[in-house]
């Protein structure tokens, strides 16, 4: 954060003071976090989009109730988690599927344009296996792990967002990495 960048609390106060467009800055800042939080929990990316949108609209609507002593990201994830539970209850789903793998790895990805077809296949298979293994992690390990790897958040920030001690965050991330490593070794032995 550079010195001209406003804090979450300042942005919230600005929105409440009438600067409606300032809310876009909060969306920009945390949309990726909410998106990745929902990514391995939902059936398809369209549903992820809908809940991300609903999360921010709901946050905007209840912005005056936001406790500025809390982290804005933690509050957003609480809203997202509640919407996710509602969504699953309505749809009668309890587990995420791996359909997102097909959506994530686009066939016409610019990044893969210059690659050999065999490389593309291996890469997609590897990505698919990683996603499946992550989805098998317990949520208490999966969430800090994804925050760490995808959002590249420092431990301290993850601890504040999840409201757990710093050491707990470290332990959970190490445990997640250990499980993934073991799964990968088993996967490689089988294939």
């Amino acid at each position: 954060m550079n010195k001209h960048e406003r804090t979450d609390q300042e942005l919230v106060q600005a929105v409440l003071a009438g600067e409606l467009e300032t809310f876009a800055e909060l969306v920009e800042r945390y949309e990726r976090l909410v998106f990745s939080f929902l990514l391995t929990r939902l059936n398809d990316l369209q549903e992820v989009e809908d809940i991300v949108q609903e999360t921010f609209v709901k946050a905007f609507r209840h912005l005056a109730s936001f406790d500025c002593e809390r982290r804005f990201a933690a509050w957003l994830l609480t809203i997202a988690r509640n919407l996710l539970i509602d969504s699953r209850r309505k749809a009668g789903r309890s587990v995420a599927s791996t359909n997102l793998v097909n959506e994530v790895m686009l066939t016409d990805s610019a990044r893969e344009a210059g690659s050999q077809p065999s490389e593309i296949v291996v890469r997609r298979e590897r990505f698919r296996s990683i996603v499946v293994m992550i989805q098998e992690l317990p949520e208490e390990l999966r969430t800090p792990f994804l925050m760490r790897v995808i959002n590249e958040l420092p431990y301290q920030e993850i601890a504040e967002i999840l409201d757990v001690p710093l050491q707990t965050v470290k332990n959970r991330i190490f445990k997640a990495r250990g499980i993934l490593r073991e799964k990968r070794e088993n996967y490689e032995k089988m294939s």
Binding site: L45, E103, V104, R111, R123, V149, I150
Partner: peptide, 11 residues
């Protein structure tokens, strides 16, 4: 990196 790139692409 692969995970980050895949998610970034989807995002």
């Amino acid at each position: 990196s692969l995970l980050r790139e895949g998610v970034e692409e989807a995002f």
